[in-house]
């Protein structure tokens, strides 16, 4: 586990990539800038996109390193195939598209082209979970489940701009395939870049408390911290364990927290099956711990289209819903269903 990070002050937890949810601090295109920095350090880094350069911030890298950038057109399978070929000739390709197109369309190409032989391919995928109101074709609601199921792949869901930048650098330094969820455009800053340290595979206890725990990933950690603040005002002290790397999974951090605080809400910007909650449940079952667990995430359905604030409320993904789930795990009566 890395050192406890201090969340930046005054930030709303309602983090949305295209609706910044009233966040007071924003950073512009953290991935694009971090990739340029990585490209300056390492001349093997190349960029690729499938007709979504302007929409994934990689156009900044393309402007800085035009010779090291390849537009492959709207062809996601080919995007991964070409990247795997580049990796096999010594380059470090960063590919971008949306989560849905990377994981649904190009799944076999990721599994075989990138993961099976541990090709050094980085897949940076936008519109994770509910960060677009565009509807079922564009909302990457089950990508973590799909990617987590593939051997050899590192799977990262960053919380904010700070972690987006740090995870980009970490992916560049890691020798092997990485799936990295992208927060694009104006991205809220939750973690202070001066103190936060992202490391692949390391969870982060961002707040301690003994009454209940929230384990969260991605942008849900911002909302989890908001929920914890509300609950603290009610006298309930909640620990928040941020788990930006779904795979490899930080068993030690999860199990040591849950052995101490066996009441947990798991919050993820993803369907409630196959992602973080499933990973936590697996770890708990393997260790034989008795834990009360509530899940916050998208239920087993394709989501509607609509505005993000509407959708986040509709699918109970907001901070008040997390706080309500904490109340449920604290309730000594058995939870129905």
């Amino acid at each position: 586990m890395t050192a406890t990070a201090t969340p930046a002050r005054g930030v709303s937890g309602n983090i949305l990539t295209s609706d910044t949810g009233g966040a007071t601090r924003l950073a512009s295109a953290p991935f694009g800038h971090a990739l340029i920095a990585a490209g300056e350090r390492d001349s093997r880094i190349v960029g690729l996109t499938a007709d979504l350069g302007k929409y994934t911030d990689i156009h900044l890298f393309a402007e800085r390193f035009p010779q090291r950038f390849f537009q492959v057109g709207m062809a996601e399978q080919n995007l991964i195939g070409i990247a795997a070929g580049l990796a096999r000739t010594g380059w470090v390709p960063f590919t971008t598209t949306y989560c849905v197109f990377a994981t649904r369309r190009a799944y076999d190409f990721i599994a075989i082209g990138a993961a099976l032989g541990r090709a050094n391919v980085k897949i940076v995928a936008g519109l994770p979970g509910l960060t677009t109101g565009y509807g079922g074709t564009h909302q990457g609601i089950e990508d973590l489940a799909l990617m987590r199921a593939i051997p050899n792949l590192v799977v990262i869901d960053p919380c904010d701009a700070t972690e987006m930048a740090q995870a980009t650098a970490a992916a560049a330094a890691h020798d092997g395939p990485v799936y990295l969820r992208l927060l694009r455009g104006q991205v809220p800053v939750v973690f202070d870049p001066a103190t936060h340290r992202f490391a692949i595979g390391a969870a982060n206890l961002v707040r301690d408390g003994g009454d209940a725990a929230i384990i969260s990933t991605g942008l849900m950690t911002g909302r989890a911290l908001d929920a914890a603040t509300t609950l603290a005002a009610e006298g309930i002290n909640v620990a928040v364990l941020h788990l930006p790397t779904l795979k490899p999974f930080d068993h030690e951090a999860v199990l040591s927290l849950l052995a101490r605080v066996p009441r947990v809400v798991v919050a993820e910007n993803h369907v409630i099956h196959g992602g973080l909650a499933s990973a936590v449940a697996d770890a708990v079952a393997d260790a034989g711990l008795a834990v009360r667990l509530q899940r916050i995430g998208i239920p087993d359905c394709f989501c509607e289209s609509g505005s993000l604030p509407y959708l986040v409320r509709r699918y109970a993904m907001d901070a008040p819903s997390i706080a309500a789930a904490v109340h449920r795990v604290l309730d000594p009566r058995p939870t129905p269903g």
Partner: peptide, 17 residues
């Protein structure tokens, strides 16, 4: 919806992807 869903009368299949 912004992208035509097959739940709407007259839409034969959900495009968009």
């Amino acid at each position: 919806e912004m992208s035509a869903p097959e739940t709407l009368t007259g839409v034969e299949m959900t495009g968009g992807s």
